[in-house]
Design a protein around this nucleic acid. Structure first.
Lengths: 107, 107
DNA sequence: ATAATACGACACCATTTGGTGTCATGTCAA
DNA sequence: TTGACATGACACCAAATGGTGTCGTATTAT
């Protein structure tokens, strides 16, 4: 039951726009091979592959060889860590505009 | 009503553990001066100040001079962007263990 | 008046990051 | 069997990142 093979920080993994777009693409399909993912980006195959490696090390992506291609699929569950982290702060969302007003009035 | 002065990516801002700890510290107090925040970290004042600048540019922190100190306070609302982004994927959280099983059975 | 404090603004540096290109290898098609 | 395709595994590079130390200045305390 070792769902946590996280060698990489999930927060760091989702920090890059390219990696977030990869996640988005993988959410829309079951399984996508590397060359097909690469076609969606203005960069080379090597760069996309590196981003996918980072996602894999964060547990956000699974990959398997099928013939000569490597197919990737999304594993969204590590995102729960982000959700948990956010839960601490979303209670501040309402109050902070008030805080801002207080701050401006003090000046 | 320009709440979005975001020069920096919020995802990038929360990617660093030091910056997440700064957010945590600021959530626990109303207002904390730089030197007091610095005392909580194993690094120098300059480094902490740089992290706070990144948080400020992401809109996550507000600062004001009071006498000779610069006091910081949390503004959590930009975190809503993260929450919105997560909302797209948390519907996958339940299904992915099934996917993983399917994958293992295929092998 | 003097000294200590808190800070911003630098210059500086090692490491990481995000990209490139190339080469060797396994796989599929003709 | 020959050639095109898809990939991994490098070597490589510029720029960003996350630290450091120092200097000058405004503020506070003595």
């Amino acid at each position: 039951m070792s769902e946590n093979n996280q060698l990489r920080d999930v927060f760091h993994a989702i920090a890059d726009p390219t990696r977030r777009r990869l996640i988005r693409l993988l959410a829309e399909a079951e399984e996508i091979p590397l060359h097909e993912l690469t076609a969606q980006f203005p960069m080379g195959r090597t760069a996309v592959s590196k981003h996918l490696t980072i996602l894999r090390e964060a547990g956000l992506v699974l990959d398997r060889r099928v013939g000569r291609e490597t197919r990737f699929r999304l594993n969204a569950s590590p995102l729960r860590e982000i959700e948990d982290w956010l839960a601490i702060y979303n209670k501040f969302w309402g109050t902070n505009l008030l805080r801002l007003n207080q701050l401006l009035e003090e000046e």
